[in-house]
């Protein structure tokens, strides 16, 4: 995995953002964080992260909109996005894939599985 390019974590819930950041750091990844969809797009453009982990229920601009906009943007289109969707919300996962996400992880997050997904997408 390219250790120099960071993982972008987009999550409005402070507790979870904090926890996931710590865990990802612990796994040897550099993490930058955004709290809404607008900020996410801005950081994607600035830092070219290797993978984006995107919560879908976001303020200002939600995850689906941000995802679609990234797909329409020549510069951001190639950055893989993993949608973080709520447990048992089947419809959300389908939505996420339709919006152009590359993969999804359901909350509560199975962390080893998430790491494997990050690694796979970052390598591709």
């Amino acid at each position: 995995m390219n250790k120099s390019s960071p993982v972008l974590l987009v999550e409005d819930n402070e507790l979870n953002r904090d926890m996931l950041t710590r865990r990802l750091n612990r796994a040897g990844l550099t993490v930058i964080a955004a709290v809404d969809g607008e900020q996410a797009l801005k950081l994607m453009a600035e830092h070219a992260p290797s993978v984006v982990l995107m919560d879908m229920n976001l303020p200002v601009k939600d995850g689906w909109t941000a995802c679609r906009e990234a797909r329409d943007n020549e510069q951001l289109r190639h950055i893989p996005i993993i949608a973080l969707t709520a447990h048992a919300m089947e419809a959300d996962r389908i939505h996420a894939l339709e919006a152009g996400c590359d993969d999804f992880a359901t909350k509560p997050i199975d962390f080893p599985e998430l790491l494997a997904k990050i690694e796979k997408l970052a390598r591709a």
Binding site: N13, L15, N16, D18, M19, L20, R22, R23, R26, N57, A86, H87, K107, P108, I109, F111
Partner: peptide, 17 residues
């Protein structure tokens, strides 16, 4: 419910770590 889920996810994450 959404709040609760987030809090639980966080606690779980720390506990696992």
């Amino acid at each position: 419910r959404h709040d609760l889920m987030n809090v639980l996810a966080a606690i779980r994450g720390y506990a696992e770590m």
